[in-house]
Design a protein around this nucleic acid. Structure first.
Lengths: 356, 356
DNA sequence: TATATTTGCGTGTTCGCACACGAAAATTAA
DNA sequence: TTAATTTTCGTGTGCGAACACGCAAATATA
């Protein structure tokens, strides 16, 4: 591997001069600069990132703002672990990382966590823009302070975010539609929404739109019923309302839940095995339902990788000024009983390594 | 971050002594060793990999032996790119990598490439064990020379390979079976094998077995026809033989091709749209067929990640003596028209970065 | 007790790069 | 021509860890 020293010798200058050219520090005559650049090019020099990281005095601070998780609603654990893995890797490159949590159903806690976060004056912020109007406030604060920021998992348009890392929710919904059409025995479906999931949660409404789009764009005759429940935690209430609808419309054969809570349904509604259930995300509870065959398909969004990639991207941006693409869409995984165990290998390998 | 210097100061010893303990170099009394170990534990010290890599004089050489690829048979390009990406990352950690190619249909070229490879006395070998008996010879040569080795993409039992990185081919076949059962309009299927794919190619025979298993284990009435063709390159011949079978058995509605060459079929057989076609791997040709809807499903095996992960694993093993799991099964991806474009994000991002 | 040998440990150099300091050369001002 | 600036560049130090060298203390041998 060619070093600065080699370049310097070939150009008959000192290492310091090469360094100045490499970092555009100025103070080099155009003539010698050109000479050095030519040699850099010809010898195909690239900075040794290891030595560079060791020597660099630049320290960066990444702040991450994501919902917390618990046992009944475990979705956010995977991105959290992905973030942790990335944090480990970038630590020795002078990038530190702090995670701030909020309650995904409470906009106040979102703002509060952000206010705490912004006091630390981080170099960059990665966050899940869960609530629309609060996100606008956050964004404007970040922009006046000139702090680059990135969206994770939920996409919101018309902001100057560096990137969005997550899934194409519209297409994910379309895929759910296709699978439903393939599996269900009739063309009558039930979509279950929760008031918990605020209407401004973009991801969920896009999934519903994508689901409907599949039938519309392919000119498929169909009927859809939509049920809004208060939440998925009150199981008796949930089961009751769903049973009512299913009894009234006995020709419904498929149920679509565009959130990560389909297990609450699968475990509490009568005769659930008769229906084709399609939901989102490989939480432990959902995976258990797949294996018992009460749920037919889960669409998954590589949650661990979302966390991991978003951090790696922002770290590369800070330390190597490597500008990422505006949207990083991760795979739309179709999970069934047979492949679900193979799906989160990287997360499993990581969990074995660390004691959380 | 706590450094060796900090540990040394706290233990009232020199940095050299701490270093001796960290690397079990010996020459430290049990008493001071114990004292140092306690402090290491309490302060939660871990070696700074960046500084370590820079200072280390250890150089490693990884040799990779994989099939070459061409335009009509592009499968091996993805693992190749994955290997390249990993090579880039580990370069500055003192790990060099060389790729050796062979013709996947010619055992002689396999052995010949290996003989060239082994002359360089690599620290470790990662290879695709394409042919059984030749692999035995290679393995015994590696073992007498005490060179650790790893299987990539194809698994062969009863060897002392460090790991296998790839897919569970049996389960992948089962999933193909399930999707076929779900999609096809009758329960009569055609399986197409090629003599090119030697019977000792484990992956393909396991896929076929898994496919059949799905119907057997679920007690599903079915009939399977198997057609052996000479190869997929002679298109006229291929189309002719397939058409013959389909004409004779007009109740066949699904065709399963357990190799990566289903596009050759989809593009050359009459009335192909009438059938449910299921094949393997997201080669450009196969992906085109998915999009035209001549192929219904592709099972994919994260080929890019196979290459990438296998190298990262062996590199960690060499530089950090981190022992991996015996089998690293990567996800079994179910690809359809709608999600295929999102599936190989990491490969796409890499290809944008480099000029191949 | 004197000498030889082993054990235990401190010191110094190096890896490739980042960055600060200051000196020589070139330019401008007087 | 000399002094004052400005431009251009060389030198030196440090980042954290790896590892070689060699000295002192402890132990063994005579």
């Amino acid at each position: 591997m060619v070093r600065i020293k080699d370049i310097a010798k070939e150009a008959n200058v000192s290492e310091g001069t090469v360094d100045r050219v490499l970092h555009n520090r100025g103070g080099v005559s155009k003539k010698t600069e050109l000479k050095i650049r030519k040699i850099l090019e010809r010898r195909n020099y690239s900075i040794n990132p290891v030595a560079s990281a060791l020597a660099s005095k630049n320290k960066y601070e990444i702040a991450v703002l994501i919902p917390n998780y618990n046992d009944t609603d475990a979705f956010w654990k995977a991105p959290y672990l992905g973030v942790l893995k990335a944090a480990e890797e970038i630590k020795s490159f002078g990038v530190n990382l702090t995670i701030y949590n909020f309650n995904q159903f409470d906009p106040k806690s979102y703002l509060k966590a952000f206010q705490k976060l912004i006091k630390t004056q981080p170099s960059s912020v990665v966050f899940v823009p869960m609530f629309l109007s609060e996100t606008s406030r956050i964004v404007s604060q970040l922009e006046t302070q000139n702090i680059p920021y990135q969206f994770l998992n939920i996409d919101v348009e018309n902001h100057n975010n560096l990137t969005y890392v997550g899934q194409d929710s519209l297409m994910a919904g379309t895929i759910a539609g296709k699978l439903m059409h393939l599996s269900a025995t009739t063309n009558k479906y039930l979509i279950i929404l929760s008031r918990e999931n605020r209407t401004d949660n973009n991801a969920i409404s896009k999934r519903v739109k994508g689901f409907q789009d599949y039938f519309l764009k392919n000119n498929l005759e169909h009927a859809m019923h939509t049920l809004k429940v208060d939440g998925f935690n009150n199981k008796l209430n949930l089961a009751q309302s769903v049973n009512d609808v299913l009894k009234k419309h006995s020709d419904i054969s498929g149920i679509f839940v565009p959130s990560s809570r389909i297990s609450a349904l699968a475990n509490n509604v009568d005769n659930i095995a008769k229906f084709t259930l399609i939901g989102f995300d490989n939480t432990p509870q959902n995976v258990a339902c797949l294996k018992q065959e009460t749920v037919s398909f889960l669409i998954s969004q590589k949650p661990f990788e979302q966390g991991y990639e978003s951090i790696k991207i922002i770290s590369d941006y800070l330390t190597k000024t490597k500008k990422p693409k505006q949207k990083i869409y991760l795979p739309i995984d179709i999970l069934i009983k047979e492949n679900v165990d193979y799906n989160d290998m990287s997360q499993n390998l990581f969990e074995e390594d660390v004691t959380i």
